[in-house]
Design a binder for these strands. Structure first.
Lengths: 274, 274
DNA sequence: GCCGCAGTGGAATTTTTATTCCAAACCCGT
DNA sequence: ACGGGTTTGGAATAAAAATTCCACTGCGGC
């Protein structure tokens, strides 16, 4: 055993964790990973809680502390508790400080986007129409296949939907407009499509959604206004308003809606909750 | 004795402290004052420590807790600890509970994801390291070209970055792993790369990031833990912890970070010459 | 296939911490 | 100054948490 000396600061500790995590037994590595991912929990958790979080026995976590050079968990925890006392204003003041820390500084900018995201989420919670959501989920879960289209700024939403649907084993096709022509012929009656577009609306997305309608597929629209050009294509509109800051939409709310949609459809298909 | 009920939140508790502190015995008033002045210490201190800070006996502090409506110090402390840990405890069980209770209506599901997103954003505000952010922005704005790689769940982040950079006229290349082999030879010395991956980490992303490093490009990592496999590739880690709900990461915080990054780099490039 | 040893889980033990209890001190009105 | 109730300090007890210990497991070398 190499008689290492206890780290003197949280930073030093985390450095050491990363150092040693390579050559550590399985359980101890689990501890290292969990600690690296949740350093803030140490101050307020017991060994038992940390051990459970890491998926190991308390005794294993104890050994882990000792490998790091501490006499035990308590000593390590003291380190976290001491540093905690200094810096923790609550979220509101922290955000304020970030914002004040310099008008054009990156941190201030980030604070704005975080705030924009938060507003969008709150607004979504207020404005979502549960009936439209229900109908959308029913429509999608009855489809043979789900087509997804969203271009430009909406493409990241589309790609996330595709990823999540795949993970839930729902047959999905992501239309990415690379080979423009052929993709629309893959849409058949009995399928469904999710079309995503925000102002200024991308014509290709609207066109493809209309083609889907003509092919006999149901269309679910995710858009930002009831006056969206997707309105004539489908009555099934899920509207999301995002706060934007300097021409950049936050997408937080849209993605939350997207993931909720996917999970609901996934569970509906595999375990109908009627 | 008025049989008061325990406060349900830290705010409520502090309100009550101010309420009652007027007509309280001397020692108990000392407790009230100390608590009002140092509310953040409760989470990480023992009764003995709090009592010493307030200049009273532990038993006096106990009585004080009970006057507030708690069963004892532990119950009060739990309130503070839970608030600190942001109760993003495992959403997996909550999802399970939701599903079992049959109350798994889509709207309820959406509410959960909205909540997860909100927590992620707040946490990002608290934990972001402004220095790392500054360095990342400097690195990216000095690059000839910005390469972006992120696969699977991180792909939507990558595609959003690509979209936003393009909109800001920053030369960008999105590596999407379609034509696996050739894309890495486009990376040259003087370029920079943004690599995004979350647990369980996608090996291809790590590999490509490493290839970029070997080619002489600087790498900025967006990941979820300091123990990320990108750690050996670059010291420049931006860590974002997302609350996940039933295996689905919210991405709200990650996207906010992404857009802040892009805008900061964009303005830096065309902005004020030093 | 057997031996040896690092690694592991879980129970036993020790230490720390919370909580209760009660006798003494204190305050206030008379 | 006296008596009643309230408040206080500190010791005693109970609960919870940390830490150690040891038997067992599984893996790698011979």
């Amino acid at each position: 055993m190499d008689a290492v000396t206890a780290p003197a600061s949280v930073e030093e500790l985390l450095d050491r964790v990363l150092d040693v995590s390579g050559d550590l037994p399985k359980r101890l590595k689990q501890c290292a990973d969990y600690l690296a991912a949740n350093p803030d929990r140490v101050a307020v958790s017991t060994v038992a809680e940390m051990a459970e979080g890491a998926g190991v026995q308390p005794s294993a976590f104890m050994r882990f502390c000792q490998v790091l050079g501490f006499s035990g968990y308590s000593q390590m925890q003291r380190l976290f508790r001491d540093t905690y006392a200094q810096n923790w204003p609550d979220y509101a003041t922290r955000l304020e400080k970030l914002r004040e820390s310099g008008a054009g500084s990156p941190s201030a900018l980030l604070a704005e986007f975080i705030e924009a995201g938060r507003l969008s989420l709150e607004n979504l919670a207020k404005t979502i129409d549960p009936r439209a959501l229900d109908t959308a989920i029913k429509t999608l879960s009855e489809a043979n296949m789900v087509h997804i289209v969203g271009l430009r700024r909406a493409f990241s939403v589309a790609s996330y939907l595709a990823y999540a649907f795949e993970k839930m084993d729902v047959p999905t096709m992501l239309h990415n407009g690379v080979g423009k022509l052929d993709s629309r012929h893959a849409i058949r009656s009995g399928d469904a499509m999710i079309a995503i577009t925000f102002a200024p609306y991308t014509p290709e997305t609207v066109e493809l959604a209309d083609a889907a309608r003509r092919a006999g597929a149901k269309v679910v629209a995710i858009t930002d206004s009831l006056a969206s050009p997707l309105r004539p294509v489908t009555p099934l509109l899920l509207t999301v308003q995002e706060a934007d800051f300097g021409n950049f939409r936050s997408l937080s709310a849209t993605l939350s809606l997207a993931v909720a949609l996917v999970v609901a459809v996934g569970t509906e298909i595999r375990g109908p909750r009627k």
